[in-house]
Nucleic acid binder design. Structure first.
Lengths: 232, 232
DNA sequence: TTACCGTCGTCAACGTTGTGTCACTTACTA
DNA sequence: TAGTAAGTGACACAACGTTGACGACGGTAA
């Protein structure tokens, strides 16, 4: 369920800038292939599949514009940014005419570049949506937190918001301890006596829903929290 | 198939710049609606359908960031550029965080802007076309939102505009949750108590229309929204 | 082992908020 | 001016979360 990191082709002949940028982007959860000239960059593009290309314009062997043309021939859709010290309007226009999505003039701020990358990737595909739409298989049950639905043997039980949040949290901690305090803080906002009592009531409700499959059990760990045990 | 001109919402309080830009873009085959402050811009967006929004940040009545937030609530997909004299990094980052596709600092070159617009529209055009002419098969029903016609067993029911919009949105989210707020913002413009009451009335009307096929059901998810369930 | 206290399990009742629906008013326009 | 569409007000009812009562359980110290 771990989504693959988006893969970036970075073509930059300034080794310093190249490495700094590569590290920065990798820290932000991208996979980065750095090439030091145009020919190598194009070769990398022919060899592998990228989600976005960042091309320096002035490079040895083959300049960025030419690389862009070749890339566009191979793949007219891949997002493409130029990174260039050439700030002349004509260069910028030419960049866009070659099918660039952005033309970023040096020096630029890494964080801004990061956001530009995020923006274009978000527009291009729905890669990042995994987190929100998580679903869980719990024994014979199927649990869809988005729809607040718990299904077993074709029967559907709609959960209340609190029931839903609590079961979702238990599922995320499946077979592991979900500390009382963590659940109370996250779902009820604070860890007070009455909220604790309320939570116990919800645990009881969830146990009732989950009775259909004896392999499922919500176990209390006295003074500590709860544990959703799934015996396989 | 003569494509209509792409329609641009331009929000700019500097009348001079606004008019120059409007003229320039119109010369390049775009339809441009120019509004002189944030509130008017948002109103225009609620009233009409745009292919891209260009927002000044500093404007009277409502600043561009706020307008962007509202626009994103109504339509998370429409391309959105900020045009701003605020060149601080924090402003730029904030712009991107609000879901902008680009943040263009003044002064900028019209021709470059034009190319940026072209680039983003080209990227968006595939996703854009499906929306307009879609029709839906819902159980025994056939729903044509363009004609506002709902057909079952040869009988045709013409829907009112609001009924039509609501059923269309439900159909787009078929079998999935349509959040109350999303529907209210998009169809009614804002999420207020009375709009909510109104929406419930329309849900009731749609349920009445859809009674002929027991496989169709509009299910409420308490506190969250509605779901058009099609049992196959 | 027993007595004790804090924690947990469960049921039922209550107040609050969200929905379903009817009837009516207002706005628009054919 | 009749007819259609949208908005408003009122009311009943359902869903939700909280609370109180009471008993069971678990850990610990005498």
């Amino acid at each position: 369920m771990e989504a693959a990191k988006p893969k970036i082709l970075l073509c930059e002949d300034d080794t310093n800038l190249g490495m700094v940028l590569k590290n920065y982007l990798e820290l932000n959860d991208y996979e980065v292939i750095l090439e030091r000239d145009g020919r190598l960059g194009l070769a990398a593009f022919q060899r592998e599949k990228f989600d976005i290309c960042l091309l320096d314009v002035m490079m040895p062997n083959m300049d960025g514009f030419t690389v862009a043309e070749e890339i566009r021939d191979i793949n007219p859709d891949v997002p493409l940014f130029f990174l260039s010290a050439k700030t002349m309007k004509d260069d910028i226009i030419q960049g866009y005419k070659l099918g660039a999505d952005d033309y970023i003039t040096k020096p630029f701020d890494s964080e801004v570049l990061l956001h530009k990358i995020k923006a274009i990737l978000k527009r291009n595909e729905e890669t990042h949506r995994e987190e929100v739409n998580a679903e869980f298989d719990l024994g014979n049950y199927h649990f869809n937190p988005r729809l607040r639905e718990l299904t077993v043997n074709g029967k559907v039980q709609t959960l209340s918001p609190k029931e839903n949040e609590l079961l979702k949290m238990l599922s995320e901690y499946k077979n592991d301890l979900l500390p009382r305090e963590a659940a109370l803080k996250k779902i009820w906002g604070s860890d007070t006596y009455f909220n604790g009592r309320s939570m116990d009531v919800y645990i009881a409700k969830l146990r009732k829903y989950l009775r259909e499959d004896s392999k499922l059990e919500i176990v209390n760990i006295h003074g500590n929290g709860f544990r959703l045990v799934v015996t396989e």
